[in-house]
Design a protein around this nucleic acid. Structure first.
Lengths: 198, 198
DNA sequence: CATTTATTGCAACTAGTGTTGTAAAATCGA
DNA sequence: TCGATTTTACAACACTAGTTGCAATAAATG
């Protein structure tokens, strides 16, 4: 009936995600997006609404992408899956994050002063993605206290993201990963921890 | 010879530190500091210079405080010192961070888009504080690969700060700490890791 | 080809922030 | 008390960013 959009929404979301990921929410301006994408401010606003709505859309898209990856990597959850996961994120050639921006969600936790309820929900859901697959994996190998150990793994993971973000380099994350793998090996049957950590 | 300051520089730095710590660099405005402290913008600028200089002064002050604490806690460095340290930061009543703002330096890593060289130096020095005491402690108990394990501990620590910042609550940090302590116990002599992790 | 309708480009508006100039106020020493 | 000198209050300035109004534009339908 009328004039169609001159850009593809998904493509644009990818570009915008890259910007938020690298520079953060504040430093990514609407006018900057206009320059990068070539799409006018007015069209952006028409399509995605205000800046925080666009950001929320990007977060959801990011979470979807990670979720699909985790589904693949933890198709048969086990300690081995976790090991492979940690080896991957600390790999010198991580195709998921070649620019070493760390993790968009973790970055957001620290950057936004007073996150909206929607943003908080998004981050909580994101964190739960990892918690679920970690717990599943630990349970499938009959590790004691899977929740506590899953929280530990999340901590190590977010710590690794911190170091990647800090140095834009996975070297330190590699050390973290190495020791985490050693710890995971120590948890394996038939030599599980002697007693519950609680 | 002339009119003296109506405020104490150290007191004011403490107040400003609290603000930067809680809300971050951007969200802490010069005018906001005026409201909190009662000290006029002009006086602030006269005393501390521009905003980024004030921030840098705050970072240095924060590092000094942490450094003094670490000196006390690691007076005789050992695995036990590390254990006590992790128990402390995940304690439900951490008097160093009652407001659960996490760590000012870690927060800064994520918040600032393009940190100045001075800020980067400050953060690197801060990180090295922990790295040094961890390495010293591990060496004193003859643990293999102290550097790699120190990097792991920093990762776990920063991960714990992430979770504290996320939930403004040390519950998840407690889990991290619990498992870290278990791991540290596993490293102790006379049952050290069988072989190097490298 | 004309009409319809969403898209687009431009510019303006508003709000907020770091910064600075200027003059009044306040304090200490002589 | 007076003068020197710093601090302080007030306001203005410059700049940036998000947002919005409006008219021109372009494509799809009949």
């Amino acid at each position: 009936m009328a004039r169609p959009r001159s850009f593809d929404e998904q493509d644009l979301l990818e570009t915008v995600m890259e910007a938020f990921w690298r520079r953060g929410y504040s430093a990514t301006t609407y006018r900057g997006i206009e320059l990068i994408t070539g799409v006018g401010i007015r069209s952006l606003a028409n399509t995605f609404g205000e800046k925080d709505e666009l950001f929320l859309t990007v977060l959801a898209s990011y979470r979807g992408r990670v979720s699909r990856n985790l589904d693949k990597m933890f198709a048969s959850p086990s300690i081995d899956s976790i090991v492979r996961f940690f080896e991957r994120i600390s790999s010198p050639s991580d195709e998921e994050d070649p620019r070493r921006n760390g993790c968009l969600m973790v970055n957001t936790v620290f950057e936004i002063d007073k996150p909206t309820a929607a943003v908080n929900r998004e981050i909580a859901q994101y964190r739960d993605l990892f918690r679920s697959v970690f717990i599943e994996s630990l349970e499938s190998d009959q590790i004691l206290d899977p929740e506590i150990r899953a929280d530990f793994l999340i901590g190590a993971l977010w710590g690794a993201f911190s170091q990647i973000r800090l140095a834009r380099d996975p070297t330190s994350a590699k050390s973290i990963s190495t020791v985490v793998v050693e710890v995971l090996d120590g948890w394996r049957s038939p030599v599980p921890p002697k007693h519950s950590v609680t």
